[in-house]
Design a protein around this nucleic acid. Structure first.
Length: 292
DNA sequence: GAACCGTGGGT
DNA sequence: TACCCAAGGTT
């Protein structure tokens, strides 16, 4: 058994948060939706939106039968709205290619729109109980500290999967718990800013602690400035469309007072190019019904 | 591999 | 206040 597994499993049993997607029988569709929402959006903001989403669309086929614009509206202010579009596309693909059943095979999951290395393995492990390494930003930080003795992980890399694989016990059930426990530890104890090392189950094993908590060069890429950015303009345009939906908005009424008109127009064009908006006549609206 | 993609809470 | 950060993925 790898060194970290036993203390992680023991800690997780008593410290894990009670989250909706950990309830017994939550289902693969619910897991898939939760993982889409959790891509770069914090847990506490996801929970109410997840429950509303699953009430409205209890199965992939239910979502696939709605226009993609409805998904964008229901997504509300979760951020990165193309995730809503991608989740809708994935639902269509699940309906058309997998008889409406969320696939279990990692390669089949990876072939769905909006699903990458993390989400594919998270569904296979947490929804179906299979044995794979699951690596998210929490996992990478915990391994960087506990195993590599560094304060922060480098940028995401394929080799991260092998690093996590090395920490997994042989047993399928135990491996799934170690995956979840490593993420959970990074989320609530081994946090980015001020880790709670006095509460950490890995104090005896932690290479970063043993080395005296050295600072490490921060190799992560920094987020671009948001204020004044094209992203901000896109967000504002899309909020206008969501608030008006299902009605279209006349183009002259889309952010008429935006300080940079060229930027506003660029935002509109890029949203149309992304499929997040449709320009019809002299109006703009959320995308309608090519779902069925 | 780097740039790009939203939004809000914590510090 | 300004900056950091968040269960990533696509191009």
């Amino acid at each position: 058994m790898p060194e970290l597994a036993a203390p992680l499993i023991a800690w997780y049993r008593e410290a894990a948060r009670d989250l909706p997607w950990r309830r017994a029988g939550f289902g693969a569709w619910g897991t898939l939706v939760s993982e889409f929402m959790l891509q770069q959006t914090p847990v506490n903001r996801v929970i109410p939106h997840l429950e509303a989403w699953l009430t409205r669309w209890p199965t992939p086929a239910d979502l696939a039968a709605s226009p993609p614009g409805d998904a964008v509206t229901q997504w509300a202010n979760l951020g990165y709205p193309r995730r809503a579009l991608w989740l809708h596309r994935a639902a269509v693909e699940i309906r058309d290619r997998h008889d409406g059943v969320v696939p279990r095979d990692v390669d089949a999951l990876l072939a769905l729109t909006g699903i990458g290395d993390y989400t594919a393995r998270a569904v296979a492990v947490f929804a179906y109980g299979d044995r794979h390494p699951v690596v998210d930003t929490n996992t990478r930080r915990v391994l960087a500290r506990a195993v590599d003795g560094r304060a922060q992980p480098g940028p995401p890399h394929k080799r991260d999967l092998a690093a996590m694989e090395a920490e997994l016990p042989d047993g399928v059930t135990e491996a799934a718990i170690v995956n979840a426990a490593t993420m959970e530890l990074g989320a609530i104890i081994c946090t980015a800013r001020s880790p709670k090392c006095d509460l950490c189950p890995l104090v005896a094993q932690c290479a970063w602690r043993a080395a005296g908590y050295p600072a490490s060069e921060d190799l992560r890429r920094k987020q671009a400035a948001y204020e004044g950015s094209d992203r901000q303009a896109r967000g504002a345009v899309l909020k206008t469309l969501r608030d008006a939906a299902p009605s279209p908005v006349p183009l002259f009424a889309v952010l008429p007072d935006w300080p940079d008109a060229a930027q506003r127009d660029r935002a509109i064009d890029s949203l149309v190019a992304d499929g997040l908006a449709e320009a019809i006549d002299d109006t703009l609206r959320l995308p309608g019904h090519p779902a069925t």
